[in-house]
Write a protein that binds this DNA or RNA. Structure first.
Length: 682
RNA sequence: GCGCCCGUAGCUCAGUUGGAUAGAGCGUCUGCCUUCUAAGCAGAGGGUCGGGGGUUCGAGUCCCUCCGGGCGCGCCA
């Protein structure tokens, strides 16, 4: 509701200033620091004063005096050196917010089936080992952003890119072939067992070390990789078994956090269906890439990047080689190697042409996984599905693309955009957004706890990055297990009778999930998370369970009210109706100054729409996490100040009840956007 | 070398297009459970917003510079 009123005020000011002063200034509005200064303020007169060469305070006074009434606004005052402070009609705001919230709650799934499609790619874990906390940050961020987009009415398709033919898979295959060694059948048997991803995690670390011990073994890896890419032979079969099994492990892990996908796009199909050949032809035809004939890149197809997208060459290298070769091609990005194989970036350009429906080719599709909520995830396939199967949805053809990828990959992402631009698709390139985020590292203490040896100079850093290649890091399932154990402990301490029951399990589940998702979402994207078990396992203070608990308290009030006050339902239900219809005017409970604390809560509850807008615009789910916490905190303060069920005045009690359920509706909605569900009790 | 990100309370972080008195959580200390669940609330203490210049009516926020930290720049992905 806040957003609606704010818009109205901005529009009124813009119109008024345009009419009266024949000039257009950007209208900024903000929340004043104190409630006594109103709910919306604008410093626009400072800017206007500059243009008109008049004192800002006088201008503000003129505008305040002559501004036409705005629906939902009680009055406009002048403050400070020339601020316009707007005071809202509290009662009207309350009623509109209740109405909006009830409408949203009645029809929460407002996912758009039409309109421009947004493709969000997230998770994209290499299918060669178990998922770790860094992957969880990616998935949880992406998932929350998807929920935000859908909530604001966008049509969204979630893709998860599976690099099932890359070196990382090749490494594990090499491990099974050389280190173990195991036959195809043996690997297939292992792949069907639980924790196969853990087994590969360790094997991958061993292979990394084995390769480091003798560099000549790298040749073996290249050979294995080539076989996998070509898609035939024992290595390719084993790669398929390994990667398919690990994808299943990842899906199971992410199902524990209720993260869904529409499509798993696999690199094997990009290769087998010759997506690259099509893209290669386009790139050559439109002159986006050139064949370097001399210099260090001789024999490679390279793409010249515009200067802003290209980090400069290493100074030393330029000095050594720059003299005898054409400068331009030396500074270009290699797309096709001199041996004719395509780089990762090249494949990514092909994939993105497909995402935008520009490639002129399509995948075949198969259903691959049914999520616990019943949603079907599909994967790409090289051949048409057998007749009689379910028809696949139409994938791709995006209007806009968000790639949730860590910030270290900013450069390759720019190259992909540059590729689109070089092909003449500059609008698509502009609508390709790198949704970047910083790493999840470990605090030195946490690394020591996990038994890693850390260099002395690292011990005093706030965080240290550990190497996945060496098998270091916190596995996602381990962390979720620990959280569940912690949550169970708490639940059973508080509700011993629920131990082992379905209700107890549900509670444990909601709390552990809520704690983890909130923990990963409370940091803004650019913040490197220094992971520590103590913080992640906390259920107090700024955490998911804190916000969930506020919802649980509301549940408790409404439940208790119905149980212990026989007349409650009859009297209060009737009064609630009188509140909603306006027959009981909320104004008397919200009037300043006695009603300020209640109004504070109403205002915050009514600000969900504005916060969602800002979060989407900034691509920052953390803003919503913050909002959930603020609302829960405001409710807790209210809860301690006002005892609702023992309120003598029946009309006031009805008002407090209505406010309480309004807070629940808004808090539940905000938490849902983070993928957090509050249990009935906890 | 060049580019990107970061530096705010003891610790971990917010601070959304520049706006009025810089905020949370954790930790520390002091209180509050015979009234709707204490996963909570109230209070105390804690800051030269890395340093220095500049732009502006106004700077934690923008520009310059210096210091400190992280990341990226491969015929890897």
């Amino acid at each position: 509701m806040y957003r609606t009123v704010e818009d109205r005020i901005r529009k009124a000011l813009r119109h008024h200033i345009h009419e009266r002063y024949k000039t257009d200034v950007p209208i900024v509005t903000e929340r004043p620091p104190k409630l006594s200064m109103g709910e919306v303020a604008s410093p626009v007169c400072f800017e206007l004063a500059k243009r008109l060469k008049k004192p800002p305070r006088a201008l503000a006074q003129e505008i305040a005096n002559s501004l036409h009434p705005i629906p939902g606004v009680a009055r406009v005052e002048v403050a400070g050196g020339g601020y316009l402070n707007v005071f809202l009609d509290r009662s009207a705001f309350f009623r509109s917010t209740c109405e909006e919230a009830s409408k949203k709650a009645a029809a929460p799934a407002n996912e758009s089936e039409s309109g421009a499609k947004v493709v969000v790619e997230h998770t994209s874990i290499n299918p060669n080992k178990a998922a770790h906390i860094g992957h969880l940050r990616n998935a949880v961020l992406g998932d929350a952003f998807v929920r935000l987009l859908r909530y604001s009415g966008r049509r969204v398709e979630v893709q998860n890119y599976i690099d099932n033919t890359g070196v990382q898979v090749a490494d594990v295959v090499l491990g099974f072939l050389r280190l173990e060694p195991k036959s195809l059948a043996e690997v297939a048997a292992l792949a069907g067992k639980p924790k196969f991803d853990y087994l590969c995690w360790d094997l991958y670390a061993r292979v990394t070390q084995w390769l480091a011990e003798d560099k000549s073994r790298l040749e073996l890896r290249s050979q294995t990789l080539k076989e996998i890419e070509e898609g035939h032979g024992a290595a390719a079969q084993m790669a398929a078994i390994v990667s398919d099994a690990i994808v299943q492990c990842h899906l199971r892990t992410l199902d524990r956090l209720e993260i869904d996908y529409d499509l798993l796009s696999r690199e094997s199909e990009i290769l087998h269906l010759k997506f690259w050949d099509a893209a290669f032809a386009m790139l050559k035809e439109r002159g986006a890439i050139q064949l370097a004939t001399s210099g260090k890149n001789a024999g490679c197809w390279v793409m010249q990047l515009s200067s802003d997208a290209r980090p400069p060459e290493d100074a030393q290298a330029t000095e050594e080689t720059g003299a005898e070769e054409p400068q331009e091609l030396a500074e270009a990005k290699i797309i096709v190697r001199s041996n004719g194989t395509v780089t990762y970036v090249g494949k990514d350009i092909a994939y993105h042409l497909w995402k935008y429906g520009l490639l002129g080719r399509d995948f075949f599709y198969r259903p691959i996984h049914t999520h616990p909520d019943g949603h079907e995830a599909w994967t790409t396939a090289s051949e048409p599905a057998p007749a009689g199967g379910q028809a696949a949805p139409k994938f791709g053809h995006a209007h806009e693309v968000y790639n949730v990828i860590d910030s270290r990959q900013a450069y390759p992402q720019q190259v992909v955009a540059a590729g689109l631009r070089a092909l003449g698709y500059s609008e698509q390139a502009d609508r390709l957004k790198h949704f970047s985020y910083n790493v999840v590292a470990l605090t030195p203490r946490c690394a020591v706890e996990l038994g890693y040896e850390i260099p002395a100079e690292d011990a005093k850093k706030t965080y240290i990055e550990v190497s996945g290649r060496k098998g270091q890091g916190v596995k996602a399932d381990d962390l979720i297990d620990q959280l569940e154990a912690r949550a169970r402990e708490e639940v059973e301490a508080r509700h011993p009778e629920l131990a082992g029951t379905a209700e107890g399990r549900q509670m444990t589940d909601a709390i552990s999930k809520g704690a983890l998702r909130y923990f990963l979402l409370r940091f803004t994207r650019s913040t490197a998370i220094a992971f520590d078990f103590k913080d992640a396992l906390s259920f107090e203070g700024e955490t998911g369970p804190y916000a969930q608990y506020a919802v649980v308290r509301v549940n408790g009030i409404l439940r208790k009210g119905a149980e212990s006050h026989p007349e409650f339902e009859r009297v209060d239900a009737a009064n609630l109706q009188r509140i909603d219809s306006g027959e009981i005017d909320a104004a008397k409970f919200l009037a300043a100054p006695e009603g300020d604390d209640l109004w504070d809560l109403v205002l915050l509850a009514g600000s969900l729409d504005a916060r969602v807008d800002v979060a989407v615009a900034a691509q920052e789910p953390a803003f919503l996490a913050r909002y959930s916490f603020e609302l829960a905190q405001a409710f807790n303060i209210f809860y301690h100040k006002h005892h609702i069920l023992s309120e003598e005045d029946a009309e006031k009690r009805a008002f407090l009840l209505r406010l309480t359920s309004l807070v629940r509706e808004q808090l539940v909605a905000a938490l849902a956007l983070l993928g957090i569900i509050a249990p009935e009790k906890m």
